[in-house]
Design a binder for these strands. Structure first.
Lengths: 153, 153
DNA sequence: AACCTAATTTAGGTTATGCCTAAATTTATC
DNA sequence: GATAAATTTAGGCATAACCTAAATTAGGTT
């Protein structure tokens, strides 16, 4: 009879895996080929190629990435949704903290990084509504919408 | 040259260790003896005595608990500060989410549990100020103060 | 004082994450 | 077609969180 129920991270994604997803997202933006290789990920994350390769394989096995071995990875439908959810959480929270809690840009961003995986959809949607469903964050990046929240005509 | 700096949890406390700290806090409140034993912790956390004992020892080694072997543990100065910080974060966030984000009590509490370790002092202090430095949370528990924030005369 | 029991601790083992180096493999280029 | 660069596999290591089984200790009983 455990009286204490432990809280799990989102979707069986570890903190670290989420960081890799964000790395891949950034690299995909910059890259000309439509695909991201393990070396790029390794450099970005500061780990060895072997490690990067393993992680990419694992994220593929979790259905978050498409993978052509020896060529590279790209986001699957599911992976794109996941990374969008994380980016949305980050950017809405950051914007809210800046505008309503008088937190500096850097501090807001730093804290967003730490909670973006754990914070609940309901809270982000509420912040989003209060902010008027903004399209851009403070760094002028797009804020992904959630359909059930952002029905801005 | 890592371009990505990973975010660490507070004070080298793992998520799980923080849960144990909160368990000990609750048990200390309820207990008549001034000390909490491994069996109590084990039951509360839903783990074996052996596991509880190990964790208590580790938290002692980290300076968060006083420990009299074969008798039990209590909070050290440092441990009390840590658990107060966590409770403060939880209770301020929860109250803010309920009052300003129209989140239900249960949802607010559930999310507070997930972010209480990661959220920054600055954000909690800001929420605290906006709430007018409340003394009690929604469950009518005391909200620990931070000196630099809550100078309520 | 010796005993017994219940609580506690130690010892040794398991699984999963996240990393590594070194060795193989494939792709691409000259 | 050889060779260099990128990628992957194989095998290892450390740490977190657990476990069971075996010791150890404290406290109450006779």
């Amino acid at each position: 009879m455990p009286k204490f129920i432990s809280i799990k991270a989102s979707d069986g994604l570890t903190e670290r895996e989420a960081e890799y997803l964000k790395a891949i997202f950034n690299l995909e933006l910059m890259s000309k080929k439509g695909v991201v290789g393990s070396l790029e990920v390794a450099n970005f994350m500061g780990v060895s190629c072997a490690t990067a390769s393993e992680v990419l394989k694992k994220l593929y096995e979790k259905g978050l990435l498409n993978r052509e071995p020896w060529r590279g990875v790209s986001f699957s439908e599911k992976g794109m949704m996941e990374v969008n959810r994380i980016l949305r959480n980050h950017r809405i929270f950051e914007t809210y903290a800046y505008r309503f809690l008088s937190i500096s840009l850097e501090d807001a961003c730093e804290c967003a990084n730490r909670i973006e995986l754990q914070i609940s959809d309901k809270i982000i949607d509420s912040m989003c509504r209060i902010l008027g469903h903004p399209e851009k964050c403070l760094h002028n990046n797009d804020i992904p919408r959630r359909i059930s929240c952002c029905l801005r005509k």
